[in-house]
Design a protein around this nucleic acid. Structure first.
Length: 589
RNA sequence: CGGGGCGUGGCGCAGUCUGGCUAGCGCGCCUGCUUUGGGAGCAGGAGGUCCCGGGUUCGAAUCCCGGUGCCCCGACCA
């Protein structure tokens, strides 16, 4: 391809509103352009990168035995009503009605396709002999994001690879799940992404096991913990905390004392008023677990992890209690709850970090008052001490004796053991070998194709621009003739271009009649992996210059058979990605 | 959905507080000459509903009212 014949609107300046590197660089390099909040056009270069990511995903899904199909983006709203997800999605689900003759057809744009595929399977699979099977598609999804942001990382329309497995037994599901997990590792490896597979929260319904594939990045929306020593990694929503070796301080237990704290309902206000540190305070949260009130004690400087609480209580639904319930249970308005002398006897569970607290400060269960010198056993009893709080940077690792690091990350993939939620709701059942009817056991597996690109750019760039691995680069090689006014240069460049293209190399020829500096800047900005310069200096000596984007220096190679040498280099990098890996390694250190 | 910011040729911005000549600057674009290894120089030129609607005024990019779009922080995110 010739630069003058395609469409690459690069920009010298950063458009207003773009802040994070991936957004800035994708706009400036002419990969994307915004159409509205949360919707982008993929320009020719951006589309090429996207297609390459898609192809890697497709190849690995096929290799893992998954079978591709394509479902429609428009789906009947009734399907979503059957699974209760019209409410679950709320405004995120884009719905509309169209007229057909004398009736209204209610349509939802698919934000994901569990309903559609389960409905399909329900119609066509009825025997254990037809399973296991995994189906996938690469398709545009629609979610009306409350707040689209970060360029292409969070949009209302995006391309997703979504796969769904169907198994007769949980053992079989484990196999299907593992195949997808392994395929995901290969996919993100091939894309050159620096990723972590983290344990993820599977949510209150259906699933029991789930992993997310995360690209650690400053601007990621998710937060994960990672142990460098043993490799434990988990989404913050799920992250366990290791043994803390909490030993209560050897101090005399002071008598409980009620102190007035008018209007002070937060940890911060009370700690300031009473001159105590938040870590000396006990936060008492009243939850409704499947409708039953329960008290949860968390150290003042910590935060409750509601997923942990829900799991620990074996509840399906968990939510902070409403003010009326709190008042009924504690006898005080919101903000003054404590474990001592609750008005109504309810179970009290505490986080492990509450156990060693002595002479602590907590709510007095009466308006405008707190208690000092509260101690466990003497003043209140708990059902038990459990891991109930959100992990923090530096917390002990749950798997080894090391510490957890907290990092931001971009979620690029998610694998999920779904169970039978959708098969039950949509009657997708099969007969086993004993003629027993069971709901089909499902798994679902998503990859955000756009996020692969954005994640790569976000983590692989320098001041000058993007640094693509060959696997995702819009073009593998860019030929830069410095003086296109020179007939000989033009002819040489054209011939090289032709030969490389004929050799199956993805090559772009910058044939613009602009100054050398402009071409160099654009080459760095877009970030093609291999740059080939034909300039008067080296041409005189029968040489041309090649330079990998991530290397500082160029090297000269003979003009004679340069095409073969370059093709060989590119093929080698395609096969091994060794050079890019070395750069990524250096970058990581 | 709460809080904040912005909207002026294709892009980035000034001008708005304190209303007043023909709305300005840089980049980009077009023409010509010179130049040619890291975003060239000179000369000439094209390109504008100053986000939209209403109001105040002799006069509005500028003041007032309403709307709308975009961005950021937070809440939310199968």
């Amino acid at each position: 391809m010739r630069w003058t014949q395609t469409f690459i609107p690069t920009m010298k300046e950063t458009p207003e509103g773009a802040e994070i590197p991936s957004h800035v660089l994708m706009l400036r390099a002419g990969l994307i352009t915004q159409v509205m909040a949360g919707a982008y056009t993929y320009l020719p270069l951006g589309l090429r990168a996207l297609r390459k990511a898609e192809r890697i995903v497709r190849e690995e899904m096929d290799a893992a035995g998954a079978v591709e199909l394509l479902m429609p983006a428009i789906t009947p709203l009734s399907l979503w009503e059957q699974t209760g997800r019209v409410e679950a999605f709320g405004d995120v689900l884009i719905t509309f009605s169209v007229r057909r003759q004398n009736r209204q057809v209610h349509i939802a744009l698919g934000p994901t396709h569990e309903e559609v595929i389960t409905d399909l399977i329900a119609r066509h699979i009825s025997s254990y002999r037809q399973m296991p099977i995994t189906l996938y598609q690469i398709q545009t999804k629609f979610r009306n994001e409350e707040r689209p942001r970060f360029g292409v990382l969070r949009t209302s329309e995006f391309i997703m690879k979504d796969a769904y497995s169907f198994d007769a037994t949980v053992e079989s599901l484990a196999g299907s799940y593992q195949k997808m997990y392994d395929a995901y590792c290969r996919i993100f490896d091939r894309c050159g992404l620096d990723y972590l597979a983290v344990e993820a929260e599977s949510g209150p319904i259906g699933g029991d096991v789930s992993h997310e594939f995360m690209v650690p990045a400053e601007n990621g929306e998710d937060r994960i913990v990672h142990c460098r020593d043993c490799g434990y990694a988990a989404n913050l929503e799920r992250a366990e905390i290791g043994a803390r070796g909490n030993v209560p301080p050897d101090v005399p237990l002071e008598p409980v004392e009620t102190v007035p704290t008018p209007g002070s309902t937060t940890i911060e206000q009370v700690s300031r008023l009473l001159g105590c540190r938040p870590e000396q305070m006990i936060k008492t949260l009243i939850y409704l677990a499947d409708g039953q009130p329960v008290a949860v004690l968390i150290r003042g400087d910590h935060e409750a992890n509601e997923n942990k609480v829900r799991r620990a209580l074996g509840a399906t639904h968990l939510a902070l209690a409403d003010p009326e319930t709190i008042e009924r249970v504690t006898g005080a308005p919101v903000g003054f709850a404590g474990p001592v002398r609750l008005k109504q006897p309810i179970p009290i569970w505490a986080d492990r970090d509450v156990e060693p607290l002595r002479n602590a400060v907590t709510g007095a269960n009466q308006a405008d008052a707190h208690l000092r010198n509260v101690n466990p056993g003497r003043d209140y009893q708990v059902e038990g001490y459990l891991d109930l709080r959100i992990a923090q940077h530096g917390d002990p690792c749950p798997r080894c004796s090391s510490q957890l690091a907290l990092r931001h990350a971009i979620e690029v993939g998610h694998v999920f053991k779904l169970g039978t939620k959708y098969s039950e709701a949509l009657s997708a059942r099969f007969l086993d070998e004993n003629e027993q009817l069971h709901p089909i056991i499902m798994g679902c597996y998503g990859i955000g194709i756009n996020r692969i690109i954005a994640g790569l750019v976000e983590t692989s760039h320098d001041e000058a621009g993007i640094i693509w691995p060959v696997a995702l680069a819009p073009y593998e090689v860019e030929i830069v003739p410095l003086n296109v006014a020179d007939e000989a240069t033009r002819r040489l460049a054209g011939r090289l271009h032709q030969r490389l293209a004929a050799a199956g190399i993805e090559v772009l020829l910058d044939d613009r009649g602009v100054r050398a500096g402009v071409k160099f800047k654009d080459a760095d900005l877009v970030g093609f992996p291999l740059r080939v310069v034909l300039g008067p200096r080296s041409l005189k000596e029968g040489k041309l210059e090649i330079k990998w984007r991530w290397e500082a220096d160029a090297e000269s190679i003979d003009l004679e058979e340069a095409d073969q040498a370059i093709a060989e280099l590119v093929r080698d990098e395609r096969a091994t990605a060794n050079r890019f890996r070395q750069y990524a390694q250096r970058r990581g250190d």
